[in-house]
Simulated scan of single mutants.
Amino acid sequence: MTSEMTARMLRLLSLLQTRREWSGADLADRLSVTVRTVRRDIDRLRELGYPVDSARGHAGGYRLAPGTDLPPLLLDDDEAVAIAVALRTAAGGLTGIEETALRALAKLEQVLPRRLRGQVTALQTALSGITWETRGPRADPALLATLAVACRDHEILTLDYTTRVGTTTRRRVEPHHLVASGDLWYLLAHDTDKDDWRIFRLDRISHPTPTGRRVPPRELPGTDPAAFVANRLSAAPTRYRAIATVQAPADHVRARTRGLATRIQPLDETTCRVDASADHLPHIAQILIGLEADYALDADPDVLNHLRNTAHRTLRATG
């Protein structure tokens, strides 16, 4: 096999790994060869043991099918560095993935070129992380993977979803994006029955079932996925209401809190309003403590009682 052919086949394999399905014409265009050459290269990949499926017809679609073993992944320098750093810092908000991430990292670093090892080490030494015991719900990696594939392939899913009041219904959705906020993960999807965009917490999703039907991607109205989810979450009803008028600029508060997004509204150059409403009283207390500024609070009686009791315990503990 000539060096030119080898390079072309490696490029072909890399393309097959980036998308679920390619037409012969698209591959030929990307590789600057004829469709006939693509067919020959596909046959050579099959001879080497790569499970490449093809669809009959004029378009001649190809895809890298699941096999008995995971085929080698081809990564460029930036992808390799990103994966290595992500594996080293893995597992925030995910259950049971720490040991698996370390095994994968060991395999990757064993074959990293020396020039990339230096980049990974530099990035890692420049970053620090604090691991807290997670009290809230954690996402299932298998569920996360299923939803990620559905988002990538624009494939309709059916799933069971349990609402905040405990009722469970079967939903049919077009997955669009996964969004992480703190320790929680959300699926942004278009609900086909309600004909509207919906946000689903991953810890409340069960029995996701791919339908095999792929649809053209819908255009999200007006903004990017993270901002869309933040806006919807800030407008969603919560169990406890807590609104703080803070004696600090909005930018100052935003820099010292996370996950509040549009829930911080400037009133003037020196004050802002923060919507700290939530379903859990300790979460509200955590938000208010993180403000690091004086504030006036308009809140439900249950919120005020919880804050008073917390303050009294703190005072007793400090004598």
Rank of each mutant, 00 (worst) to 15 (best):
K194R: 15
P221V: 04
Y240C: 06
T245N: 10
I284T: 11
A235D: 07
L233R: 01
L288C: 01
R213I: 13
P237T: 08
T192E: 13
T270R: 09
V229F: 03
A235C: 06
V246H: 05
I264F: 03
P282C: 10
Q265K: 00
T270G: 04
R204P: 04
I243S: 05
A250E: 09
R239S: 08
Q286Y: 12
L288S: 03
R273F: 04
L184I: 05
E219K: 11
D224Y: 05
G222K: 06
D268A: 07
T257M: 02
H207E: 14
T271R: 15
A226T: 13
H252E: 14
H190A: 12
A226I: 02
W185V: 01
L202H: 13
P237L: 06
H190T: 01
P217M: 07
L220R: 02
P237W: 02
L267A: 10
P210S: 14
L233S: 00
L187H: 13
L220T: 02
A261D: 15
P221S: 11
D275Y: 03
P221M: 13
R213T: 14
P216W: 02
P249K: 00
E269W: 02
G222R: 09
Y186H: 15
W197L: 01
T238N: 05
P249N: 05
F228E: 04
D196M: 12
R218K: 08
V246E: 06
L291A: 07
F200C: 10
H190V: 03
L267V: 09
R254Y: 00
A276G: 09
T209A: 10
R241V: 11
I289S: 15
L267R: 06
D275K: 00
F228Y: 15
P282V: 14
R263N: 01
E269A: 15
G259E: 00
S277M: 01
P217H: 03
I284C: 07
T211Q: 10
I287L: 05
A248C: 03
T270C: 10
R239K: 06
R254P: 04
E219A: 15
F228M: 03
D279C: 05
G259T: 00
P216I: 04
P282A: 10
L291K: 11
R258V: 12
L260T: 02
D193Q: 15
P208F: 04
E219I: 06
P282W: 07
W197S: 01
P210R: 15
A255D: 14
T270S: 14
V229L: 01
P266D: 12
G259P: 01
P221N: 09
T270N: 10
R256T: 08
R201F: 00
S206Q: 13
R204F: 02
